[in-house]
Structure formats: C-alpha cells, structure tokens
C-alpha cells in the first residue's frame, strides 16, 4: 500500500481531477502523525467503550454476565496495549521526523510487522494500477469543503427519507443532487427522477408489495 501512496503523491494530474487540497510532498510525515493521533483517539474511544460495557455487566446474573465480561475485559486490555503502542510511536515518530522521511509506513505507523509488504508490493507494481487503494486515498485527501458537502447531502437524504418517505425522496433527492452536485440539465434530472421513482414504485409497491420507508405523514 505504501508504494501506491507515494505514487499518488507524485501524480499531479490525478490530484487536480480529484480536487483535493494539497498532496504536497511533505504529506507523508504529517499524515503519519495524524494517523498515529487518530489511532490514539480511536483507541481511547474504544477503551472507554469497553470499560463502560464491562461495568454495565455488573448488574447481570452470572450466566448473562460472564461472556460479556470476558469479551469486554479482553477488548479493554488489547485497546490499552494499542493506545500505549500508538503513543510510543507518536513520540518516536516526532523524534525521528526531522531525521528521516518515513517512506515505508505513511498510512499505518503502528504496524507490528512493517517491512513485510514493501518488497512484494513493489514487485507487483506493474500490474496493479494506481487505483488500488482509492478509497483510503480519497478519504485521506478530500478537502474539508468536499467532506462538508458530501455529509450535508447524505444527512439531507436520510432526513428527507425519514420525513417524507421513499416515494417522495427518490425523485426529489435525485433532482436536487443531480442538478446541484452533478450539474446536469433540468431535463436530464427530471427524466432520471421520474424513472427511478417509477421503477421503485413498480418493484416495491406493485410487484413485491414490500413495505418501504413511509415517511411521517403517510404512516
């Protein structure tokens, strides 16, 4: 994976196309430390979750509580280890950051066996094209504005679905999204919306008779 990452950063054409903020060469080291910080934060969150879940089991009978205790106890210990390890790495990474560029492990500074994949991945480069870890790449590099936009659309979709039900949401969201996020013509949006609404209605309401989200007003 690391090989691919470095390849991405050297591909300005793709960068523009994706429209992300800055894939500048300093990215790896910065990214590695944000990755480590995220690992600490996520580790702490899970640590808290396991701790809470362990305590929650206190009121239950022995039979009901034993398995949750084992699971959450183990989870707590492993999460604790993980947090300690990430912190150590974070400290180590800071110290080393000035000295070297961590080419090998930008995405996962915690990997217990760091070197394993590097030679093989390099060996297969010719065959695996630049897109192999696209999802990670897009998530890591999309700018704040894109994230806000995308999350706003998704939130809007599900709120609309909850309030107005499927058969309103399907055409309405299609029109809005295609028009304003997809920059399509109104005609195109209308045809798309009508088609998708009609197909869903025919499939779920007429053919299968399977319930779909009804919305608040049509219950």
């Amino acid at each position: 994976m690391s090989a691919a990452e470095s390849r991405h950063t050297t591909s300005p054409a793709r960068t523009e196309e994706i429209g992300m903020a800055d894939p500048a060469p300093q990215a790896p080291s910065r990214r590695s430390s944000t990755g480590a910080v995220a690992d600490v934060v996520l580790g702490l969150l899970l640590l808290a979750l396991f701790g809470w879940a362990f305590l929650e089991a206190a009121d239950w009978s022995f039979k009901a509580a034993i398995f949750p205790r084992i699971v959450t106890g183990l989870g707590f210990s492993v999460a604790f280890l993980q947090v300690v390890q990430s912190l150590l790495r974070l400290a180590g990474g800071r110290r080393a950051a000035g000295a070297r560029t961590p080419v090998t492990s930008p995405a996962g500074p915690i990997e217990p066996v760091p070197a394993e994949s590097v030679p093989q991945a390099a060996g297969t480069t010719a065959e695996d094209d630049a897109n192999e870890d696209d999802v990670e790449y897009v998530f890591q590099t999309a700018g704040a504005r894109r994230w806000t936009e995308a999350i706003a659309w998704v939130t809007g979709f599900f709120v609309l679905l909850y309030v107005a039900g499927l058969f309103v949401t399907a055409p309405l969201f299609s029109v809005l999204y295609l028009r304003f996020a997809g920059k399509r013509s109104w005609t195109f949006c209308a045809i798309y919306a009508v088609t998708i609404g009609a197909v869903l209605y025919a499939a779920f309401e007429l053919a299968l008779g399977i319930p779909v989200p009804p919305g608040l007003f049509l219950d």
Partner: peptide, 8 residues
C-alpha cells in the same frame, strides 16, 4: 498487518 487493531 494490524494484528492488534484486528483483535480490538
């Protein structure tokens, strides 16, 4: 590669 994370 992330055995510890996998266990968590």
């Amino acid at each position: 590669k992330h055995l510890l994370k996998g266990f968590i």
